[in-house]
Design a protein around this nucleic acid. Structure first.
Lengths: 140, 140
DNA sequence: TAAATTATTGCGACAAATTTGCAAATATAT
DNA sequence: ATATATTTGCAAATTTGTCGCAATAATTTA
Protein backbone atom coordinates (compact mmCIF):
# COMPACT_ATOMS: atom_id res chain seq x y z
CA UNK A 1 0.00 0.00 0.00
CA UNK A 2 1.52 3.27 -1.14
CA UNK A 3 -0.68 5.55 0.88
CA UNK A 4 1.95 5.82 3.57
CA UNK A 5 4.50 6.90 1.04
CA UNK A 6 2.03 9.37 -0.43
CA UNK A 7 1.20 10.71 3.01
CA UNK A 8 4.88 11.15 3.84
CA UNK A 9 5.50 13.18 0.71
CA UNK A 10 2.50 15.39 1.43
CA UNK A 11 3.37 15.88 5.10
CA UNK A 12 6.95 16.75 4.31
CA UNK A 13 5.46 19.57 2.32
CA UNK A 14 2.99 20.86 4.83
CA UNK A 15 0.05 19.24 3.06
CA UNK A 16 -2.22 16.54 4.31
CA UNK A 17 -3.58 13.36 2.84
CA UNK A 18 -7.26 14.12 2.50
CA UNK A 19 -10.06 11.92 1.26
CA UNK A 20 -9.98 13.81 -2.02
CA UNK A 21 -6.32 13.27 -2.55
CA UNK A 22 -6.48 9.63 -1.67
CA UNK A 23 -9.31 9.23 -4.15
CA UNK A 24 -7.38 10.86 -6.97
CA UNK A 25 -4.28 8.88 -6.15
CA UNK A 26 -6.32 5.69 -6.29
CA UNK A 27 -7.73 6.64 -9.66
CA UNK A 28 -4.17 6.77 -10.95
CA UNK A 29 -2.68 3.83 -9.12
CA UNK A 30 -1.99 0.85 -11.31
CA UNK A 31 -3.53 2.45 -14.38
CA UNK A 32 -2.13 3.46 -17.71
CA UNK A 33 -1.60 7.21 -18.09
CA UNK A 34 -4.97 8.93 -18.09
CA UNK A 35 -6.19 12.15 -19.64
CA UNK A 36 -7.69 14.91 -17.53
CA UNK A 37 -11.03 14.38 -19.19
CA UNK A 38 -11.05 10.74 -18.16
CA UNK A 39 -9.88 11.57 -14.67
CA UNK A 40 -12.53 14.24 -14.35
CA UNK A 41 -15.30 12.03 -15.65
CA UNK A 42 -14.26 9.15 -13.43
CA UNK A 43 -14.43 11.37 -10.35
CA UNK A 44 -16.92 13.95 -11.47
CA UNK A 45 -19.83 12.96 -9.31
CA UNK A 46 -17.62 13.17 -6.26
CA UNK A 47 -15.14 15.94 -6.99
CA UNK A 48 -15.14 19.32 -8.66
CA UNK A 49 -13.15 19.93 -11.82
CA UNK A 50 -11.17 22.69 -10.17
CA UNK A 51 -10.24 20.43 -7.29
CA UNK A 52 -8.93 17.82 -9.65
CA UNK A 53 -6.83 20.34 -11.52
CA UNK A 54 -5.51 21.74 -8.27
CA UNK A 55 -4.72 18.31 -6.92
CA UNK A 56 -2.92 17.18 -10.02
CA UNK A 57 -0.97 20.42 -10.00
CA UNK A 58 0.00 19.83 -6.39
CA UNK A 59 0.88 16.20 -7.06
CA UNK A 60 3.03 17.24 -9.94
CA UNK A 61 4.78 19.93 -7.94
CA UNK A 62 5.60 17.37 -5.26
CA UNK A 63 6.73 14.80 -7.79
CA UNK A 64 3.86 12.43 -7.10
CA UNK A 65 2.66 12.38 -10.69
CA UNK A 66 3.95 13.56 -14.01
CA UNK A 67 2.59 14.24 -17.43
CA UNK A 68 3.02 12.00 -20.43
CA UNK A 69 2.66 14.06 -23.55
CA UNK A 70 0.72 12.78 -26.50
CA UNK A 71 0.52 15.22 -29.38
CA UNK A 72 -1.05 18.37 -28.03
CA UNK A 73 -2.59 16.50 -25.18
CA UNK A 74 -1.13 14.88 -22.14
CA UNK A 75 -2.00 12.16 -19.72
CA UNK A 76 -1.18 11.75 -16.08
CA UNK A 77 0.53 8.84 -14.40
CA UNK A 78 2.11 8.24 -11.02
CA UNK A 79 5.75 9.25 -11.02
CA UNK A 80 8.82 7.07 -10.88
CA UNK A 81 8.68 7.21 -7.08
CA UNK A 82 5.63 4.97 -7.23
CA UNK A 83 6.18 3.07 -10.45
CA UNK A 84 9.94 2.86 -10.86
CA UNK A 85 11.76 4.71 -13.61
CA UNK A 86 10.57 3.68 -17.02
CA UNK A 87 10.00 4.94 -20.52
CA UNK A 88 7.04 4.63 -22.85
CA UNK A 89 6.40 2.82 -26.06
CA UNK A 90 3.54 4.45 -27.94
CA UNK A 91 1.80 2.38 -30.55
CA UNK A 92 1.01 4.61 -33.50
CA UNK A 93 -1.70 2.26 -34.63
CA UNK A 94 -3.78 1.31 -31.61
CA UNK A 95 -2.65 4.13 -29.34
CA UNK A 96 -1.69 1.85 -26.49
CA UNK A 97 1.12 2.97 -24.22
CA UNK A 98 3.46 0.27 -22.98
CA UNK A 99 6.13 0.61 -20.34
CA UNK A 100 9.77 0.05 -21.10
CA UNK A 101 11.66 -0.53 -17.86
CA UNK A 102 14.66 1.64 -17.30
CA UNK A 103 18.05 0.34 -18.38
CA UNK A 104 21.12 1.46 -16.40
CA UNK A 105 23.34 1.59 -19.44
CA UNK A 106 20.88 3.80 -21.28
CA UNK A 107 20.42 6.15 -18.35
CA UNK A 108 24.15 6.46 -17.95
CA UNK A 109 24.66 7.22 -21.58
CA UNK A 110 22.04 9.93 -21.54
CA UNK A 111 23.58 11.60 -18.51
CA UNK A 112 27.03 11.33 -20.00
CA UNK A 113 26.02 12.94 -23.27
CA UNK A 114 24.38 15.82 -21.47
CA UNK A 115 27.29 16.30 -19.12
CA UNK A 116 29.67 16.37 -22.05
CA UNK A 117 28.10 19.58 -23.29
CA UNK A 118 28.37 21.06 -19.81
CA UNK A 119 24.73 20.59 -18.94
CA UNK A 120 23.79 19.30 -15.47
CA UNK A 121 21.13 16.65 -16.09
CA UNK A 122 18.59 16.07 -13.36
CA UNK A 123 16.09 13.83 -15.10
CA UNK A 124 14.73 13.00 -18.51
CA UNK A 125 11.83 11.64 -20.47
CA UNK A 126 12.08 9.24 -23.36
CA UNK A 127 9.08 8.39 -25.49
CA UNK A 128 9.38 5.87 -28.28
CA UNK A 129 6.86 5.68 -31.13
CA UNK A 130 6.22 2.73 -33.37
CA UNK A 131 4.16 -0.45 -33.45
CA UNK A 132 3.32 -2.57 -30.44
CA UNK A 133 3.83 -6.33 -30.69
CA UNK A 134 0.17 -6.97 -31.54
CA UNK A 135 -0.11 -4.33 -34.29
CA UNK A 136 3.29 -5.20 -35.67
CA UNK A 137 2.15 -8.80 -36.05
CA UNK A 138 -1.22 -7.86 -37.52
CA UNK A 139 0.15 -5.35 -39.98
CA UNK A 140 2.46 -7.59 -41.97
CA UNK B 1 16.47 26.69 -49.23
CA UNK B 2 14.13 24.09 -47.86
CA UNK B 3 11.03 25.26 -49.68
CA UNK B 4 11.51 22.63 -52.34
CA UNK B 5 11.63 19.94 -49.75
CA UNK B 6 8.56 21.38 -48.08
CA UNK B 7 6.73 21.58 -51.37
CA UNK B 8 7.59 17.99 -52.17
CA UNK B 9 6.18 16.74 -48.90
CA UNK B 10 3.01 18.72 -49.39
CA UNK B 11 2.53 17.65 -53.01
CA UNK B 12 3.09 14.04 -52.18
CA UNK B 13 0.09 14.43 -49.95
CA UNK B 14 -2.20 16.22 -52.32
CA UNK B 15 -1.63 19.59 -50.70
CA UNK B 16 -0.03 22.65 -52.14
CA UNK B 17 2.57 25.08 -50.92
CA UNK B 18 0.55 28.25 -50.51
CA UNK B 19 1.69 31.68 -49.44
CA UNK B 20 0.24 31.02 -46.00
CA UNK B 21 2.09 27.78 -45.54
CA UNK B 22 5.35 29.23 -46.73
CA UNK B 23 4.91 32.07 -44.30
CA UNK B 24 4.34 29.77 -41.35
CA UNK B 25 7.22 27.57 -42.38
CA UNK B 26 9.46 30.61 -42.49
CA UNK B 27 8.35 31.67 -39.04
CA UNK B 28 9.62 28.34 -37.76
CA UNK B 29 12.74 28.00 -39.85
CA UNK B 30 15.94 28.47 -37.92
CA UNK B 31 14.15 29.41 -34.70
CA UNK B 32 13.99 27.80 -31.29
CA UNK B 33 10.74 25.98 -30.63
CA UNK B 34 7.91 28.51 -30.45
CA UNK B 35 4.60 28.52 -28.67
CA UNK B 36 1.34 28.88 -30.52
CA UNK B 37 0.78 32.26 -28.92
CA UNK B 38 4.09 33.52 -30.25
CA UNK B 39 3.45 32.05 -33.64
CA UNK B 40 0.01 33.58 -33.73
CA UNK B 41 1.17 36.98 -32.62
CA UNK B 42 4.04 36.98 -35.07
CA UNK B 43 1.66 36.26 -37.95
CA UNK B 44 -1.55 37.68 -36.61
CA UNK B 45 -1.84 40.70 -38.80
CA UNK B 46 -1.48 38.49 -41.84
CA UNK B 47 -3.12 35.22 -40.89
CA UNK B 48 -6.11 34.07 -38.93
CA UNK B 49 -5.67 32.10 -35.74
CA UNK B 50 -7.70 29.20 -37.11
CA UNK B 51 -5.54 29.03 -40.19
CA UNK B 52 -2.43 28.78 -38.10
CA UNK B 53 -3.86 25.97 -36.02
CA UNK B 54 -4.98 24.16 -39.14
CA UNK B 55 -1.63 24.59 -40.80
CA UNK B 56 0.33 23.39 -37.80
CA UNK B 57 -1.97 20.40 -37.54
CA UNK B 58 -1.39 19.63 -41.22
CA UNK B 59 2.35 20.13 -40.86
CA UNK B 60 2.42 17.81 -37.91
CA UNK B 61 0.39 15.18 -39.69
CA UNK B 62 2.83 15.28 -42.59
CA UNK B 63 5.84 15.20 -40.30
CA UNK B 64 6.96 18.72 -41.18
CA UNK B 65 6.88 19.95 -37.61
CA UNK B 66 6.56 18.38 -34.21
CA UNK B 67 5.70 19.49 -30.73
CA UNK B 68 8.16 19.97 -27.92
CA UNK B 69 6.31 19.58 -24.67
CA UNK B 70 7.01 21.86 -21.77
CA UNK B 71 4.90 21.05 -18.74
CA UNK B 72 1.30 21.47 -19.84
CA UNK B 73 2.35 23.63 -22.73
CA UNK B 74 4.11 22.84 -25.93
CA UNK B 75 6.11 24.58 -28.57
CA UNK B 76 6.51 23.89 -32.25
CA UNK B 77 9.68 23.31 -34.19
CA UNK B 78 10.54 21.99 -37.61
CA UNK B 79 10.96 18.25 -37.58
CA UNK B 80 14.12 16.23 -37.96
CA UNK B 81 13.61 16.21 -41.71
CA UNK B 82 14.58 19.89 -41.73
CA UNK B 83 16.79 20.18 -38.69
CA UNK B 84 18.50 16.83 -38.35
CA UNK B 85 17.71 14.48 -35.48
CA UNK B 86 18.44 15.97 -32.09
CA UNK B 87 17.27 16.00 -28.51
CA UNK B 88 16.57 18.82 -26.09
CA UNK B 89 18.17 20.03 -22.91
CA UNK B 90 15.66 22.04 -20.88
CA UNK B 91 17.07 24.37 -18.27
CA UNK B 92 14.84 24.21 -15.21
CA UNK B 93 16.06 27.59 -14.08
CA UNK B 94 16.05 29.94 -17.07
CA UNK B 95 13.76 27.88 -19.27
CA UNK B 96 16.10 27.89 -22.22
CA UNK B 97 15.98 24.90 -24.56
CA UNK B 98 19.29 23.75 -25.99
CA UNK B 99 19.84 21.21 -28.73
CA UNK B 100 21.75 18.02 -28.11
CA UNK B 101 22.84 16.57 -31.43
CA UNK B 102 21.91 12.97 -32.03
CA UNK B 103 24.44 10.31 -31.05
CA UNK B 104 24.48 7.08 -33.10
CA UNK B 105 25.32 4.94 -30.12
CA UNK B 106 22.42 6.33 -28.14
CA UNK B 107 19.96 5.97 -30.99
CA UNK B 108 21.04 2.39 -31.52
CA UNK B 109 20.65 1.53 -27.89
CA UNK B 110 17.16 2.98 -27.79
CA UNK B 111 16.07 1.02 -30.83
CA UNK B 112 17.66 -2.13 -29.49
CA UNK B 113 15.89 -1.88 -26.16
CA UNK B 114 12.55 -1.36 -27.83
CA UNK B 115 13.10 -4.18 -30.27
CA UNK B 116 14.01 -6.51 -27.44
CA UNK B 117 10.48 -6.27 -26.08
CA UNK B 118 9.09 -6.97 -29.53
CA UNK B 119 8.16 -3.38 -30.26
CA UNK B 120 8.89 -1.93 -33.71
CA UNK B 121 10.40 1.51 -33.04
CA UNK B 122 9.89 4.16 -35.68
CA UNK B 123 11.12 7.25 -33.91
CA UNK B 124 11.49 8.72 -30.45
CA UNK B 125 11.75 11.85 -28.42
CA UNK B 126 14.19 12.44 -25.62
CA UNK B 127 13.94 15.49 -23.40
CA UNK B 128 16.53 16.08 -20.69
CA UNK B 129 15.88 18.43 -17.78
CA UNK B 130 18.49 20.08 -15.60
CA UNK B 131 20.68 23.16 -15.54
CA UNK B 132 22.18 24.79 -18.58
CA UNK B 133 25.89 25.70 -18.46
CA UNK B 134 25.17 29.31 -17.49
CA UNK B 135 22.74 28.53 -14.68
CA UNK B 136 24.87 25.67 -13.45
CA UNK B 137 27.79 28.07 -13.16
CA UNK B 138 25.74 30.79 -11.52
CA UNK B 139 24.05 28.54 -9.03
CA UNK B 140 27.16 26.89 -7.68
C1' DT C 1 -11.50 17.48 23.90
C1' DA C 2 -13.00 22.04 22.50
C1' DA C 3 -11.53 26.21 20.43
C1' DA C 4 -8.63 28.40 17.29
C1' DT C 5 -5.89 28.31 13.16
C1' DT C 6 -4.73 26.81 8.71
C1' DA C 7 -5.42 24.17 4.70
C1' DT C 8 -8.71 22.28 1.35
C1' DT C 9 -12.82 21.97 -1.44
C1' DG C 10 -16.94 23.42 -4.12
C1' DC C 11 -19.10 26.73 -6.76
C1' DG C 12 -19.80 30.02 -10.13
C1' DA C 13 -17.79 33.09 -13.06
C1' DC C 14 -13.86 33.87 -16.11
C1' DA C 15 -10.29 33.60 -19.37
C1' DA C 16 -7.59 31.28 -22.67
C1' DA C 17 -6.96 27.88 -26.09
C1' DT C 18 -8.67 25.22 -29.77
C1' DT C 19 -12.29 23.79 -33.09
C1' DT C 20 -16.02 24.16 -36.53
C1' DG C 21 -19.25 25.60 -40.33
C1' DC C 22 -19.56 28.12 -44.08
C1' DA C 23 -18.89 31.61 -47.64
C1' DA C 24 -15.19 33.96 -50.11
C1' DA C 25 -10.68 33.65 -52.14
C1' DT C 26 -6.83 31.10 -54.17
C1' DA C 27 -4.53 27.38 -56.38
C1' DT C 28 -4.53 23.48 -59.66
C1' DA C 29 -6.15 21.00 -63.51
C1' DT C 30 -8.66 20.93 -67.98
C1' DA D 1 -9.54 30.96 -69.43
C1' DT D 2 -12.81 28.03 -67.08
C1' DA D 3 -14.05 24.56 -64.03
C1' DT D 4 -12.82 21.97 -59.90
C1' DA D 5 -10.80 21.30 -55.71
C1' DT D 6 -8.36 23.25 -51.93
C1' DT D 7 -7.49 26.76 -48.65
C1' DT D 8 -8.45 30.78 -45.84
C1' DG D 9 -10.95 34.20 -42.93
C1' DC D 10 -14.56 35.15 -39.99
C1' DA D 11 -17.60 34.54 -36.33
C1' DA D 12 -19.39 31.54 -33.10
C1' DA D 13 -19.09 27.49 -30.26
C1' DT D 14 -16.46 24.24 -27.38
C1' DT D 15 -13.19 22.75 -24.50
C1' DT D 16 -9.76 23.38 -21.16
C1' DG D 17 -7.84 25.49 -17.39
C1' DT D 18 -8.02 29.36 -13.68
C1' DC D 19 -9.61 32.42 -9.89
C1' DG D 20 -11.92 34.51 -5.83
C1' DC D 21 -14.35 33.53 -2.08
C1' DA D 22 -17.38 31.32 1.26
C1' DA D 23 -18.11 26.77 3.38
C1' DT D 24 -15.91 22.54 5.12
C1' DA D 25 -12.45 19.61 6.89
C1' DA D 26 -8.02 18.89 8.98
C1' DT D 27 -4.44 20.16 12.22
C1' DT D 28 -2.71 22.49 16.14
C1' DT D 29 -3.07 24.65 20.56
C1' DA D 30 -4.46 25.29 25.08
Amino acid sequence: MQHNNLKAILRKNGSSLTRTRRLIFDLLDGQDPQSMQVLISRADDQLDRATIYRTIELFERLGIVHRVNIGWKYKIELSDVFTGHHHHLHCSKCGKILDLPSNPMLETMIDTLATKVDFAPRNHVLEIYGLCPACKQAGS
